Simulated scan of single mutants.
Amino acid sequence: MILFISMFLLGAYMAIAQASPWESVKEPFAGQEQSIGSYANGCLSGGEALPLKGEGYQVIRPSRNRYYGHPDMITYLTKLGAKTKAFGLDDLLIADIAMPRGGNFSSGHASHQTGLDADIWLSFAPDTLTKKAVENQTAISMVDLKNYKLRRDNWLDDHAVLFQVAASEPEVARIFVHPVIKETLCSMEWEDRSWLQKVRPWWGHHYHMHVRLSCPEGSASCVNQKAPPQGDGCGAELVSWRPKPEDSNKKTASVTKKKKVKIKPAQCTTVLTQ
């Protein structure tokens, strides 16, 4: 019994020790609106909460308290919801944006730290969700991961509309999606293909799209990601993401990489503690 209690207390202590201090802050920092640092190592000053329901969208899992963003992101999401609704789409499901003051998570995200990243699930809500349903949505994958192909039973024409509308806004820097979804969009006929440049393949994004905005004006300490390559990204670059046949004779040496310690911009200390 004593051993069990000791192990329980040790586990609780480790959970606390591993928690990020940014997760304990419940309100935005009341300073000038700024995204500070890089997407994966920064913080947020003057952030705003996205209203939990608006025209053309609903926020899911609000108990996580991750529906804060730079005012530019809040404007973008409300504008996107209104535009997609005008195209006849059901409500968008907005998932994680950032915590009230941005910063790093103890798990789940490396980015989403400056209020300029937002996850939008690739499922829609035809009706207003109940309080229980808002917290317990089930993700719907668009990709047969085992066979590396699109799940045609889940993919809708509405998804293509969503991607085009979302990526066509000038403030968008990138939209991350699974490579199979990018291939699907590339295979379609478009009068204007320029927006496809912003749709970038990345593993894991098979049930949601990850929208990233460029650094806003007035955020002097914000670090933009390098611009994506020229072109629509539908050629050899995209082909390179396809799984390669395993070579049974090839031996891969295991390499242990040291985890780099990231030092946040000095302004983040003020944002976190005051």
Rank of each mutant, 00 (worst) to 15 (best):
V261S: 10
S187K: 01
W195V: 05
Q34G: 02
S20E: 12
K244R: 08
P245G: 03
W22G: 07
Q197S: 14
K251C: 11
W202Q: 15
A17I: 00
N65G: 03
L92Q: 12
V255Y: 01
S63D: 11
G47T: 03
H70Y: 05
M14S: 14
D91Y: 10
K132R: 13
E237S: 14
A82L: 10
G56Q: 01
D119L: 06
I175Q: 00
I2A: 15
F29M: 03
K182N: 00
L93V: 06
S123F: 11
H178S: 09
G47K: 02
P170A: 08
H178C: 09
G46Q: 09
L93P: 09
A125Y: 05
F176E: 10
M142E: 12
H205V: 13
M14R: 15
Q18M: 13
K149W: 05
W121A: 10
K131A: 15
R212H: 11
M14E: 15
P62G: 06
P100F: 05
M73T: 09
P216I: 02
K260W: 08
A30D: 15
A166D: 01
P243C: 07
I94M: 11
L129W: 02
P28E: 07
K53R: 14
K85W: 05
V255L: 02
A15C: 10
N41A: 15
A220Q: 15
L50W: 09
V180N: 07
I120H: 13
T256Y: 00
I74A: 01
R101H: 03
N136L: 06
A15Q: 14
I16K: 14
R61M: 13
H70C: 01
L44S: 02
I263A: 10
D91M: 11
T252D: 12
A220N: 13
D192I: 02
A19H: 10
A227W: 01
A166P: 07
E237K: 12
A167K: 01
M1Q: 11
Q197F: 06
Y67K: 08
Q230C: 00
E27G: 00
M1V: 10
H159K: 02
R174D: 03
R212A: 08
L89N: 08
L122H: 07
D192A: 04
H109V: 09
V255R: 02
I97L: 07
Q18E: 13
K131S: 14
T273D: 14
W203F: 12
G42C: 01
H206I: 00
E191V: 02
D90M: 07
C234S: 02
L156Y: 08
S63V: 03
L238R: 06
I94W: 10
A98D: 07
P245V: 03
E169F: 05
W203V: 10
N41T: 09
A173E: 09
Q34E: 11
V180A: 08
R64W: 13
Q34R: 13
M73F: 05
L10G: 05
K262E: 01
L145F: 04
L272D: 11
H208L: 15
A86N: 12
V211R: 02
H206Q: 15
H109L: 12
F29C: 03
V261K: 14
E237M: 08
R212D: 04
D247V: 05
E189I: 04
F29K: 06
R101D: 04
Q274D: 14
P216W: 07
